[in-house]
């Protein structure tokens, strides 16, 4: 199997894209789940504020999502641009 330099570079970029998105998805997944669990706790304690709590949960999750989106951006850059 003759391997050329350009081929190795592409191969590493593909592997890097998978690792970037794969590992990058772990943190936001766990973090957003924690937010949702605590939102359920808070609604259970104080159901009257369910609307406010859901809004706070969604804003918190959106911020926590950002690192997942960074990973996605890096993965797409590795796949299509680099």
């Amino acid at each position: 199997m003759a391997i050329e330099g350009a081929d190795i570079v592409k191969a590493a970029a593909f592997l890097g894209a998978g690792i970037s998105m794969g590992l990058g998805a772990i943190g936001p997944g766990v973090g957003e789940g924690m937010v949702a669990a605590k939102a359920c706790e808070a609604i259970g304690k104080n159901p009257k504020e369910a609307g406010l709590l859901t809004r706070t949960m969604l804003v918190g999750q959106a911020v926590s999502e950002s690192t997942g989106i960074y990973s996605l951006v890096i993965a797409l850059l590795l796949l299509f641009v680099v």
Partner: peptide, 11 residues
């Protein structure tokens, strides 16, 4: 909450 947490698996 689960739907939002799912998003990175979809990415």
């Amino acid at each position: 909450g689960q739907a939002v947490s799912q998003s990175t698996a979809i990415y």
